[in-house]
């Protein structure tokens, strides 16, 4: 069913992303940051998509450790990869924005630092997956579970350590003109995420099936 949905999702995402620049151009300028603020629409949307992907990866990893379901493993792998991809978007758009509004490329604040640490955790998941050899699914599942558990702790500890970033209560207080544009972008990111997840999970399943065939042929 997912397979038939993928083209529809991709077309919908393409339409949304195609129209997003016009909406962002026409959105009202923010009072203090002006035009720089407009990076917000992609920055926050990709950050939320990354969080979603991290949660999916942690849950799928726990499910794999419990039941050894290969589907759960493929979902976890796809989610870890996409967490790294969307995290990269966050970590690139973040400094661009920070340079203009705070004056520094990088600030060691709670949200920035914990995003970087989380991104590193999921990158290490992928490194482990690639280089650990036999049994790397189980090992990386353990890392996925741990990354899911540690992420809130990372956030909490850096939050007490230092804070400069705008807090989440910015989102509900967005003026209506901005909120609509942001939701538009968020939906685009989420549709793209679901489509990529479906494709990547299917690819992982095909790779596993191919490996099985190879093994059967060698025996």
């Amino acid at each position: 069913m997912m397979n038939r949905l993928v083209p529809i999702l991709l077309i919908a995402a393409a339409v949304i992303f195609g129209y997003a620049p016009f909406l962002i151009r026409d959105s009202p300028a923010e009072d203090t940051m002006g035009v720089v603020f407009k990076i917000f629409y992609f920055h926050v949307s990709s950050a939320l998509t990354m969080m979603l992907s991290a949660i999916v990866c942690a849950i799928a990893s726990a499910a794999y450790l419990r039941r050894r379901s290969r589907t759960a493993d493929h979902i976890a792998l796809a989610a870890a990869e996409l967490a790294v991809v969307f995290g990269a978007i966050v970590l690139i758009t973040g400094p661009l924005w920070a340079r203009k509004s705070w004056g520094f490329w990088w600030v060691w604040d709670a949200r920035v630092t914990s995003t970087l640490v989380m991104w590193m955790m999921f990158s290490s998941y992928l490194l482990l997956r690639k280089y650990a050899g036999v049994g790397s699914e189980t090992l990386s599942a353990a890392v996925g579970v741990f990354a899911g558990v540690m992420s809130p702790l990372v956030y909490k500890s850096v939050d007490i350590w230092r804070t400069q970033h705008p807090t989440t209560n910015v989102l509900p207080s967005l003026p209506p003109g901005m909120r609509g544009v942001w939701l538009w972008c968020l939906v685009g990111f989420l549709l793209l995420y679901v489509a990529l997840m479906a494709l990547r999970t299917r690819l992982a399943a095909s790779q596993a099936a191919l490996d099985d065939l190879h093994l059967a042929l060698e025996d």
Binding site: M120, S124, L127, L128, Y131, A132, L139, S157, V158
Partner: peptide
Amino acid sequence: TLFAAMLVRASSRDVLLPILLYPMTAP
């Protein structure tokens, strides 16, 4: 201890252990 135990049979475990360890122990 958990990661060292997990990696004991993995190839390139010497490199992978610190890679996993430092982000996870950040808090």
